[in-house]
Design a protein around this nucleic acid. Structure first.
Lengths: 190, 190
DNA sequence: TGTTACATGTAAGCAGTTACATGATTTT
DNA sequence: AAAATCATGTAACTGCTTACATGTAACA
């Protein structure tokens, strides 16, 4: 149920084609959600059916069909309704910590390798998220610029601050994960 | 792919029926994985087919059929292979932080309500995980006891320490999530 | 006698991943 | 001329959730 609102949220910033949305959600830039194009295209059709977005066909070059999707007022309302709702969090399901709870069955050196590899990926994720927060705060990300262009000047600082705060939060959480994995290494013995 | 190894990991501690496994994974005790019984029963059948567990039929009372599942040597090997493998982490997909990145569209009081509600559930999750870590360290959880009974005395401290460490890590991560959500409240303005 | 716990399954549907399939346009 | 990028779809499969379905045993 989240992808539809992720798409609505992006389209609320600016009009996009399915291809552009696919790029945006392609496990790429360390954004907050990801999806393949095989999930995007059918979803856009459904969103059109529901009246939450409209698609306008155009062409690229002479023959290449491209459909640009824009959020409707109904779509904006639905997005706001969803954002303003307290959703109960699904029970945590992190494969790594499941794996970690069975690490006692391994030779300590192998267990250490598993833990440090995880810690490193989390350190990297933290760095990416932190860098993105800096970019956002400086107003250097294109999507936020477009979003700001339709808001009053005095809101700009608040908006970029909030969005940067979300990525700073991602960085802090990833850092805690790395630290905790490293703390487990100390308990390994040997 | 994780549920099969979660099940193998539990069965490595002791023999269980499908019903007991269902109880164990029923989103309950704040454990590390969850699944409904409709997922458990078919999976146990597959694991038997693959030779990773064996099921022995028995009865409860006069007529109630119950099958007790035990891990095989092949199952123990598969579990150890999985635990000793570095798996690349799937891209983060947390619906809450997706929601958070759109909070600028809300009236600050409503946004604050969403953030504090999340922070509170994370504080509660942290408390549950922390309490579980204490129980584990004290050796008061039944499953770990059975696990320890098949290990040498001098390993007991290391094993309980590691497992407790995993739940302490869960607590630390949940606490960071709560703190970060609370930090966002400060950026809300108004 | 009624309720709770024990016990085991199947079916429908949704979300998500990987693979299949095709073709135009731009860049090197 | 070849490769990368733009562009849009469908199909098969896996994992998971929710609902359907059935019946026994223990307890109050």
């Amino acid at each position: 149920m989240s992808l539809r609102h992720a798409v609505l949220g992006v389209l609320a910033a600016r009009e996009m084609t399915g291809y552009e949305l696919s790029r945006f959600f392609d496990s790429s830039a360390g954004w907050l959600w990801s999806a393949g194009h095989s999930q995007i295209y059918p979803l856009l059709g459904k969103l059109v059916d529901e009246g939450l977005v409209t698609g306008s066909e155009g062409v690229r070059g002479e023959h290449l069909r491209r459909v640009s999707y824009r959020i409707t007022e109904a779509g904006e309302n639905e997005l706001q309704r969803w954002v303003g709702t307290v959703h109960q969090a699904a029970p945590e399901k992190d494969p790594f910590w499941l794996q970690a709870v069975f690490l006692d069955q391994l030779e300590p050196p192998l267990a250490r390798a598993v833990l440090t590899a995880y810690a490193e990926t989390q350190r990297e994720a933290a760095e990416r998220a932190g860098a993105h927060a800096v970019e956002l705060r400086a107003g250097r990300t294109p999507l936020v610029r477009e979003r700001l262009s339709r808001r009053s000047e005095d809101e700009h600082h608040r908006i970029t601050g909030l969005k940067a705060g979300v990525f700073a939060a991602q960085a802090a959480i990833a850092t805690t994960r790395a630290e905790q994995a490293e703390a487990l290494v100390e308990l390994l013995g040997d």
